[in-house]
Design a binder for these strands. Structure first.
Lengths: 138, 138
DNA sequence: ATTGACTCTGGACTTAGCTCAAGGGTGTAG
DNA sequence: CTACACCCTTGAGCTAAGTCCAGAGTCAAT
């Protein structure tokens, strides 16, 4: 029963989420309501897999499902501006997040080095020096 | 009533969270149980503010409160290794996250440019080109 | 002694994003 | 025709990280 439509299970495994999640996304309008077989099974177009992957990626980047739906729910004219603003805002977020991360990475790295030195010097027995330092790290 | 102890409200405003959150953190063992006044009011040492800020920062970096508590809950010897592993894991996470973000930033930037061009070319009336492109973006 | 701002505890409620369960139907291979 | 994997809907439950509430007590100032 497979011209070029996929069942929910196939979609799920190919996109790396659970069938429940796929249904959830449909309910949540992140996916258009899928066509149904005569018996009521959902039949998805193959692109759905890509779409779900996109959703997941956006999510990782700090977009909420609501945000993503906004991106998708663009009808015709004029709303380009809305999308633009959303993207712009998220871009700024991403940039500052990246900077914060770089910083924090340094802090953690620093702790790691201390940790290693301590281990080398006194073995397992010594108290961890990280916590002392961690309190001071802005 | 202030030698060098702070009330919960002061802690809250100085560290930028709500009093409820401070109490929550105490219950959750992210803060040591605070001393109490004769009447039962919590009295915090000033460092608590820094500690809460650290928690918030770690959280931003993708640590869960549970992770943070692990960092804090180090007793004495030997657990240095545990902390080490946690930090190491988080560092790797951070790095891959940063890369993902760089990537996604490019994708979004690309969309923005298209969006702008479209607006310049056809004004508000044109359909947003982002969505077409977005579907294809891995 | 009264006011008004602040705090206490315990527990219920919230939001996002799933995840599970119950009870039943579908599709196909043997 | 029966087995078995898969699917359906509805609706409840879960986790994280708070947030809010009621009813009561505390503290400093007037």
């Amino acid at each position: 029963m497979n011209g070029s439509g996929l069942q929910i299970g196939e979609i799920a495994t190919h996109s790396g989420v659970s069938v429940d999640t796929v249904r959830y996304y449909e309910r949540f309008k992140l996916l258009p309501r899928a066509a149904r077989s005569s018996g009521g099974f959902r039949i998805f177009p193959a692109e759905t897999v890509e779409r779900i992957r996109f959703i997941k990626q956006a999510q990782e980047m700090g977009f909420s499902l609501d945000d993503v739906r906004q991106l998708f729910s663009i009808g015709g004219a004029n709303q380009c501006l809305t999308v633009r603003e959303l993207l712009l805002k998220k871009l700024v977020d991403l940039e500052s997040k990246i900077n914060q991360m770089r910083n924090f990475k340094k802090v953690l790295n620093c702790h790691l080095v201390e940790c290693d030195n301590e281990l080398k010097a006194h073995g397992d027995e010594s108290a961890c020096p990280i916590l002392v330092t961690i309190e001071k790290s802005k």
